[in-house]
Nucleic acid binder design. Structure first.
Ligand SMILES: Cc1cc2nc3c(=O)[nH]c(=O)nc-3n(C[C@H](O)[C@H](O)[C@H](O)COP(=O)(O)OP(=O)(O)OC[C@H]3O[C@@H](n4cnc5c(N)ncnc54)[C@H](O)[C@@H]3O)c2cc1C
Length: 493
DNA sequence: CTAAGTGTTGTAATC
DNA sequence: AGATTACAACACTTA
């Protein structure tokens, strides 16, 4: 007779879930638990779209558990406290949870592990979130995380292919009788968690395993698009529908298994006459995720410049007015502002839009720290993912991985090649809706008569550009050059 | 050790 | 119109 507590954190799914598989091996009673940790429940730090996505994912998980004779039990409070209580009241003998390599999680899980062991509880914590065990990747790389993508691909090729996805169980052991129908463990509402503006929930694809698998199926149905997917050629201004999968949040919360994604794409490649290759292919995208997960695992202070051995040390400015203008989408550059409004409204941006706004904030125009941008993304992105967010911010700010700092995105010309008529800008910045195409990316250049005609006067109804891009770009490339020559001692050894 | 090859995704001017 | 080039010359990996 074994009472097993299965602790869901990420990995909010029943398909390909190693922790679940191990949990049911010996269990006579299975208690599937999610803990509402106050650390993650904070309307000031977690945007409403991501919280809504999480709650949808929990509702779906509960529904799926119930079809297998089980249910989700939501506990509220510090994980150590509420789980310690659960261990004793439910006579738990075994604790299973998916391994999480982020620093907060490693700390938390270490404490939980020793607590459980003190209570004589067996702890099982398999890898399930990534394609490979990050320790196995490190070992294959000689104990270091590769710093280039191609070196990373070589290293993982030594590991063979990722483990095959595990099937969804056909039935589950029930929880102990007293709590099967108890209303005490219900999934909360947004209001209960302190969110007030419920109208603002506007993410495009709902959360949950069911929705994630469905979205994957829908995207993969266009086999030619999958086979010929080339990331830099996808259109950042496409929004209805977006050009890429928008599966980031499902992958981050584990509603969708990375291995399932991997093998489903492989299946299409096998039937296609030809397909694209890394680094641009669709399969390559899930490998980028893997690459950055390993780096985040192996690198100290990964989400900061200070004390981060792979991050170039740069004397960024501190300018709260610029930062506010950027994060609130009022820089005076319509393409940048429209993207920031899309981020705020929907919690998602195309990869190249992320490039554009990140470059603008850091080395391109405003010369502000990537950490400030990371914090804004962390709050607003539905697919916010600790390793990926930090990695990509370092990339765009030329702090690590990427060094061709004279390649600066233009906030005027870049989006024009995709969307000369400015559909994207008009959609996300309705104030500019009636501008003629010729001025949609540079409204300040429109003659006053045109501005009046369009019903939007620059400086009154829409801001003047906060910096002159051409000047800022020249100056910042020079500053970059100095940062690159100034301090070679900060480079990794 | 040195040296050559390589690197997801820029822009603007030019032919 | 699509490819080529200047811009200015970097870091990491591997031979
Ligand atoms: C400044 C900046 C911050 C970012 N922050 C995040 C973040 O917090 N969370 C996040 O998931 N992605 C982040 N990205 C990476 C990338 O932009 C998104 O993963 C992608 O745009 C999400 O859209 P999608 O799911 O349609 O991507 P697709 O192109 O459909 O890719 C499928 C999946 O592959 C993975 N992937 C794709 N591109 C990358 C990449 N560059 N790095 C790592 N994994 C990748 C993601 O899991 C993604 O969902 C960031 C990029 C930048 C430039």
């Amino acid at each position: 007779m074994t009472h097993t507590l299965l602790w869901f954190r990420k990995g909010l799914r029943l398909h390909d879930n190693p922790a679940l598989q191990m949990a049911i091996q010996k269990a006579t009673r299975l208690m599937p638990v999610f803990v509402l940790d106050p650390h993650f429940i904070d309307p000031d730090r977690v945007g409403i779209n991501r919280m809504a996505f999480l709650l949808e994912s929990l509702v779906d998980l509960d529904r799926r558990l119930r079809t297998l004779g089980s249910r989700l039990l939501v506990l509220r409070g510090q994980p150590e406290e509420v789980l310690a209580h659960a261990f004793s009241t439910w006579q738990v003998g075994r604790l299973c949870f998916e391994r999480d390599t982020e620093p907060y999680a490693r700390n938390r899980d270490e404490r939980l592990r020793s607590l459980a062991q003190k209570c004589g509880i067996e702890v099982v914590s398999p890898t399930g979130h990534t394609l490979f065990d990050p320790d196995a990747v490190l070992k294959a790389g000689g104990g270091r995380a590769p710093l280039t993508y191609s070196a990373f691909l070589r290293v993982i090729s030594r590991l063979g292919t990722p483990a095959q996805p595990q099937p969804t169980p056909a039935h589950l052991p029930p929880p102990i009788a007293e709590i099967c129908e108890s209303p005490d463990y219900a999934i909360p509402t947004l209001t209960e968690l302190g969110y007030t503006d419920l109208e603002a929930v506007n993410h495009r694809y709902p959360g949950g395993e069911t929705a994630g698998l469905e979205r994957l199926g829908d995207y993969l149905a266009d086999r030619a698009r999958v086979a010929h997917f080339a990331k830099p050629d996808t259109d950042p201004t496409a929004f209805d529908p977006p050009a890429t999968t928008v599966l980031g949040a499902h992958l981050k919360f584990g509603c969708l298994s990375a291995r399932t994604f991997y093998y489903e794409v492989q299946a299409i490649y096998r039937q296609a006459r030809s397909h694209t290759e890394p680094p641009v292919s669709l399969l390559a995208q899930i490998l980028w995720r893997e690459f950055f997960y390993v780096l985040g695992y192996a690198t100290p202070n990964y989400d900061r410049m200070a004390g981060n051995p792979i991050c170039r040390q740069i004397a960024w400015d501190d300018n709260p007015a610029y930062l506010a203008a950027w994060s609130e989408g009022r820089t005076g550059y319509p393409w940048i502002d429209a993207a920031m409004h899309q981020l705020e409204r929907e919690g998602w941006l195309h990869h190249l839009s992320r490039h554009a706004v990140a470059c603008f904030l850091t080395r391109g125009d405003l010369w502000l720290s990537w950490e400030a941008g990371q914090a804004v993304f962390e709050r607003l992105l539905v697919d916010q993912d600790w390793s990926l967010n930090a990695s990509n911010w370092m990339w765009l700010s030329a702090s690590a991985f990427f060094h061709a700092y004279h390649r600066v995105y233009s906030p005027i010309s870049f989006a024009k090649k995709y969307d000369p008529a400015g559909r994207f800008v008009r959609h996300y910045l309705p104030a500019l809706e009636r501008y003629p195409d010729a001025f949609i990316y540079e409204p300040w250049k429109a003659p006053l008569s045109v501005q009046r005609e369009a019903g939007c006067i620059v400086g009154r109804d829409y801001p003047e550009p906060i910096v002159d891009h051409t000047e800022a770009r020249t100056r910042n490339i020079e500053r970059m050059r100095m940062a690159f020559t100034a301090d070679p001692s900060t480079l990794p050894t």
